[in-house]
Computed example of a mutant assay.
Amino acid sequence: MSDQKEPHENSSNSFLAFVVGGLVVAVGIIAWIMYGSDESGDVDINVDGGGDAADAVEDAAESVGDAADDVTDGDSTQ
């Protein structure tokens, strides 16, 4: 009868294992972010198939940029 364990010993060991496991995972994620990423840092995104819609958006952006330049220069021609 004196060899019985208290119920708190097993639960505290499980909690400690859970905390240590979480720390190991956190250190692994931080190491992957710090050392596993591409060194150049450049991102290249290409979208194929835009066609006429992409050209129209580009033209609209240029027109808006030109209008903004005209307004800031005080050369408003309407």
Rank of each mutant, 00 (worst) to 15 (best):
G21P: 05
E9T: 13
D59V: 10
G28A: 08
A31W: 12
G36Q: 03
A67P: 00
D52M: 04
V71N: 14
S40L: 00
S40A: 01
D38P: 00
N46G: 06
E6Q: 12
D66K: 14
A60M: 02
I29A: 10
M34T: 08
G65S: 07
S76R: 07
F18L: 11
N13L: 13
V25S: 11
P7T: 02
I33S: 02
V19F: 08
Q4V: 10
V43R: 03
V24Y: 08
E6C: 09
S37P: 00
D70H: 03
I33D: 02
W32T: 07
A31H: 10
I33Y: 06
T77M: 07
L16G: 03
F15H: 13
A53R: 06
D75S: 14
D38K: 03
G28C: 06
D48T: 13
E6I: 11
S40E: 01
I33N: 05
G49R: 01
E39G: 01
D69K: 15
V71D: 14
G65H: 02
S11F: 04
D75Q: 13
D55K: 08
D75M: 08
A56G: 00
S2I: 14
A26P: 00
W32Q: 05
A31E: 09
S63H: 04
E6W: 09
A53F: 08
F18T: 13
A61N: 09
E9L: 12
K5A: 15
V71G: 11
D3F: 15
S2A: 13
H8L: 12
A60R: 02
S2F: 15
G74V: 01
N46A: 12
A67H: 01
A17N: 07
N46E: 12
V19G: 02
F18R: 12
D75A: 13
S40D: 02
A56W: 00
M34E: 07
S37G: 09
S14D: 08
D70E: 10
L23I: 08
A68V: 14
T77Q: 10
P7M: 02
Q78G: 10
G50K: 11
L23N: 01
V47M: 10
D73Q: 12
G50H: 10
L23R: 01
V19D: 06
M34A: 10
A60N: 03
N13A: 12
V20Q: 13
E6Y: 10
M34Q: 09
S12C: 15
V43K: 05
K5P: 12
N46D: 11
V25E: 09
V71C: 13
G51Y: 01
S2Q: 14
V43P: 00
E39I: 02
G41W: 01
D48S: 15
D52L: 07
Q4L: 09
A61M: 08
F15Q: 14
S14Y: 06
A17K: 09
N10E: 14
G36V: 04
A26F: 08
I33L: 09
D75W: 04
G49N: 04
E9K: 11
T72N: 05
V25K: 09
D52V: 08
E9C: 07
D38N: 05
I30L: 13
P7S: 06
D55F: 03
S12D: 15
M1A: 15
V20P: 06
V47F: 11
